[in-house]
Nucleic acid binder design. Structure first.
Length: 204
DNA sequence: TGCCAGGCCCTCTTTAGGGCCTT
């Protein structure tokens, strides 16, 4: 059940980089974290109403053939809006996924109440010695078990969720606190809003 | 055929530019 105390980690596969340039979502994957554990997941392909490029087919493994019989974006996004409810939201490079979430939900006139935070931005502060801050690199860096099946929405959201739990564990270790100070999470997340910081401070 | 965006962050900065990330 969605609520303001759960965190939905989401990832979109899309036809390109910018909804402002006409790009659409082709897959949504998400997991819910509650009390430090993944409790639920959501995944669906969606038909964007146009053919995807060979680059995207190769990059994601999502072919035009796969999308041919997928439900339309509006139908899937309506279900996803119900899934996220009032939960707070997390993504790796959240500015990208937020743009697509905003664009797709605006098309079906579905608002959402959660606040976004970004595992990429926080990881740059917490894992400063990582070779880079791509999702796959950070999964290796944190010794998170992985099959390497990146660039699919559910898998990337699952890996982002595990990365997030690793980030929280690292902060707890660094500051030797079972609960992460509210002000510290606000600083790391660069958010002045109280909701996300309260959520992130959940004990392990 | 080839290209497209945008937010954050760093620095040889702030009257700016470019790399990193995401598909």
């Amino acid at each position: 059940m969605a609520n303001a105390d759960s965190l939905v980690v989401l990832d979109f596969e899309t036809t390109g980089l910018s909804p402002d340039q006409g790009d659409r979502a082709i897959e949504i994957g998400a997991v819910r974290i509650e009390n430090g554990r993944v409790t639920e997941h959501f995944q669906s392909l969606m038909n964007p109403g146009r053919r995807v490029s060979p680059f995207i087919e190769n990059y994601t493994g999502i072919s035009n053939e796969l999308l041919k019989d997928a439900p339309p974006c509006g139908e899937v996004m309506a279900e996803f809006a119900d899934f996220i409810g009032t939960s707070n939201l997390l993504a790796h490079n959240a500015s990208f996924d937020k743009r697509f979430l905003d664009a797709e939900l605006q098309r079906i006139n579905k608002p959402y109440a959660g606040e976004f935070t970004c595992s990429l931005l926080v990881s740059r502060r917490v894992f400063q010695s990582a070779p880079n801050h791509r999702l796959g690199t950070l999964v290796d860096y944190c010794n998170i078990e992985s099959t390497g099946d990146f660039h699919r929405a559910l898998y990337d959201s699952q890996m982002t969720a595990q990365l997030w739990l690793a980030i929280l564990a690292s902060i707890r270790t660094t500051y030797q606190r079972s609960e992460i100070p509210f002000a510290l999470m606000q600083k790391l997340c660069k958010t002045p809003k109280p909701g996300i910081a309260r959520l992130l401070a959940v004990p392990s």
